[in-house]
């Protein structure tokens, strides 16, 4: 930007922002060391094409991703079938909120029902997110695919099963449910979990993608 384009307000802004960064110089000094420490011996990941090839090739990680995907889809279908067939009590408490608030330490904190009922299944070109929450009033989905903007889940037949279908290209997605304003980040059927800022989010691999930034 040309200096002559700047008015006094611009100059003041520049100076203030520079001061902000300059005042942090001490703590930024070792940033590169902290970054390298976190990286350890890890190498840059393959790109999307490399990941797709690894899905096709019979490697351990590719097979795992395939199995997780097939398993999650099957679990979702079976669970939905059971529920719609009336074999599960319809008044089951929705209490995924038991994991909300403070971050739960592990998958085992969820109930068996949650394990069987919560899933994301591939449907046509989209991915179906399913959450049983009979007592919930509002359920939404937030994730890296929506810039963490809430996407409402619907329960049109009021059976307590909330769903949303998302058209997602292959990739790795982080997501969580928000149930009546409370964060529910540990979907039992997620492929993986990440903990950032003291809170869990679920991770979903679609089509074998695994390199999301």
């Amino acid at each position: 930007m040309n200096l002559e384009d700047r008015d006094p307000m611009d100059e003041l802004l520049c100076e203030t922002l520079r001061q902000d960064v300059a005042s942090a110089a001490g703590s930024l000094q070792a940033l590169e060391e902290r970054v390298l420490e976190r990286l350890g011996d890890r190498l840059p990941r393959r790109g999307l094409w490399g990941s797709l090839r690894s899905m096709a090739a019979p490697t351990r990680s590719g097979r795992r991703a395939q199995l997780v995907f097939v398993g999650a889809t099957a679990a979702a279908c079976v669970a939905l079938g059971l529920f719609l067939g009336g074999r599960l009590p319809s008044a089951q408490p929705a209490e995924p909120v038991l994991l909300g608030g403070a971050p739960a330490p592990a998958r085992s904190a969820s109930t068996p029902m949650m394990k069987s009922m919560t899933a994301q299944a591939a449907v046509g070109n989209g991915v179906l997110f399913i959450l049983p929450a009979p007592n919930a009033r509002v359920v939404s989905l937030v994730g890296s695919f929506s810039e963490w903007e809430p996407i409402p889940l619907s329960d049109d037949d009021r059976d307590g099963i909330w769903t949303a279908e998302m058209p997602l290209p292959p990739g790795r997605y982080e997501y969580a449910f928000i149930i009546d304003g409370r964060w529910f980040g540990q979907d039992p059927s997620a492929d993986d979990y990440v903990k950032s800022f003291g809170e869990y989010s679920s991770v979903r691999y679609v089509g074998g993608g695994g390199d999301g930034a």
Binding site: R45, G47, L48, G50
Partner: peptide, 14 residues
């Protein structure tokens, strides 16, 4: 900022 550099490195092939 630290996280950004870690993620950038891990995704450098992209």
């Amino acid at each position: 900022a630290q996280d950004a550099f870690v993620r950038a490195y891990l995704n450098l092939r992209r």
